[in-house]
Amino acid sequence: MSRAAPLIIVIVTLALAAASLLTGTESISVARAWDEWRTNADVAPNWHILTQQRLPRTMLALLAGAGLALAGCSFQALLRNPLATPYTLGIASWGAFGAWVATIVVQTAAQSETGSFRSVLLHSDVIGFSFVQAAAFAFCLFNVGFIYFLANQRERLSPAVLLLAGVTMGMFANAGIMLMRFFALPSQLVNMDRWLMGGVDLLGAEPVITLIVGVVPCAIVLLLHAGQFDQLGFGPELAAGRGVNVRRLQAITFLTCSLMTAVIVSKVGPIGFVGLIVPHAVRSLTGSRHRILMPLSMAAGGAFLCFCDIAARQLFDAEIPIGIITAVLGGPFFLVLLVRRRFTDWD
């Protein structure tokens, strides 16, 4: 491992977070924002943009990027598969399916004569989740619970069944999405396609608090098991021989990662590639020991999403969805990693 790598990753993350705070269509000054806050100014545009728009956006990028990268890293260890991502087990597809179902239900409600039903669906907001986000989260959890039930047989949790059931459930959800699209109005198709491309352009503190509540406890649980992931990398039998309760570790990892991913997806949409490329990129700098790899993947995941969000705001006149940037950058970057490593690890 390069000794400077952890320091470089942390510095780059902080620099990109700072850049994200200062980047946007409106030019703002931190000094002026500070003055506005200090003097309790009646008109405080700099302070308002910084705290209500840029800070939430930057925090969302950091939290979502950190969570997705950590989930990818953990799923790769759990499934012993370098191609595993937070979405391999169909979580993103079920989140999208849930969002679509909710959209169609809201559409029905909007046309409904019953005022209370309509009001509940259109204006409900539970712990920072809109009805569409809550439905996405609920569908994610259903998928997680169902494949856990399938894989948790005969007193063991089968990673192979998790993987196959997850992929199959993902296909099933995609079929459901096609059906929902068939019933949707043209305007809803546009809105939902935008949601599917992901975005951290949410306003205010509420979404940030939701992600903090969803990501931080899960991250702590996963980081405390970092040493056990190293053992699992050499196979479940050797890990068990080293004193790891493998079944417990598998269950905790699966449920924690899934919950964390479900919260992220339901809030910012299914942003792809972060969970795949970030752990591999960090691994190539720091080695594969999870005590180092996991926290640095979190930092690098946050940095990557900050960078992509800055690019999404700056590349064109109109802001483009962050999911497009992560895919455009992530795909080629992953191929470069593959070629540079000459497949020696994964053969």
């Binding site: 790769q76 260890a77 012993r80 598969n81 370098p82 040493g227 056990q228 190293d230 053992q231 990398g233 050499f234 196979g235 039998e237 050797l238 068990a240 021989g241 080293r242 004193g243 790891v244 691994r283 080695g287 594969s288 020991r289 020696t344 690890d345």
Partner: peptide
């Protein structure tokens, strides 16, 4: 009691010293 299974195929590569240090886990 230490147990060494029949086949050991790591998912990701570690150095030999890191691999031996994994034995300190208990």
């Amino acid at each position: 009691v230490a147990f060494l299974p029949q086949s050991v195929q790591p998912t990701f590569s570690l150095t030999v010293f890191e691999t031996v240090c994994l034995g300190r886990h208990p």
